[in-house]
Amino acid sequence: MQPSDRTEDGSTKDGSHVETTLAPPHREVAAQTHNAGRVYGKGNAQVRAIDGVTVSFAKGQFAAIMGPSGSGKSTLLHCMAGLDNLTSGSVSIGDTNVTALSEAKRTELRRDRVGFIFQSYNLVPSLTARENILLHCTFAKTKPDQAWFDEVVSTMGLADRLSHTPTELSGGQQQRVAAARALVHRPEIVFADEPTGALDSRSGRRLLTLLAHVAHDKNQTIVMVTHDPVAASFADRVIFLADGKVVQEITKPTVERILQIVQELDEKQENKNAEHLDEWGDPLAVTE
């Protein structure tokens, strides 16, 4: 893992400055879950992907969700974005209880009020960058706000790439197109699922800087799932998940602090696994 190249005061080595102050506590809530649970499968094959997660995200906050593989972080994100449905508890975006919505209403929610950035970009190869960015508007049959479109595009550094198709763009550019797509319809909240997972560290850093900038300067709520402590360190707040539960939460994260927590959680997990074995006895021991 790369050591953090970011200093405590938030300025990066390359000199750009990122606002990291946490939003005031009285700010309105963009999204929250209450006792959220999601079970897959039936009977013995049942898997509890998330189990009683209660968490809320303030407007304008850039939050990261971390946790080992299988901790339920992606499931939590999918359920909050209206891509998947909880089996217990509730999720709301703004004042809307997503859990209570029909599939058609959830589709509208995804279209109008939510943005999503995928790890593998998920651009439509036959469409240009501009057309990809405008997909939400196409589906909603609305015209984009031209000024905002221009601003998003220039922020993402895509102004001269709009007529290119995805195959003509680098990975970093493609992911910035995806980010622009997630922002251009002014969603209440943007969900990002490992957005830097497929990028090299330089492109990843650029994207994260931009996301943080959008969150703080444009008051855009962003919730990002990541397993990369460096990526998480760009957020205002990091929530740690293990076995489908929130196990820890820190604000103003640094890479060192995150790494420390990850390590603690890993140790706990190992102890737990050992206990688990004790409970069942040593499988290698010969019973009389």
């Binding site: 058609a104 999503f116 439509v124 997909l135 939400h136």
Partner: peptide
């Protein structure tokens, strides 16, 4: 499938 799934994820209705 992926592309159509993406459309659905980004808010295209079934009918669309």
């Amino acid at each position: 499938n992926r592309e159509l799934g993406l459309f659905r994820a980004l808010g295209a209705s079934r009918r669309q």
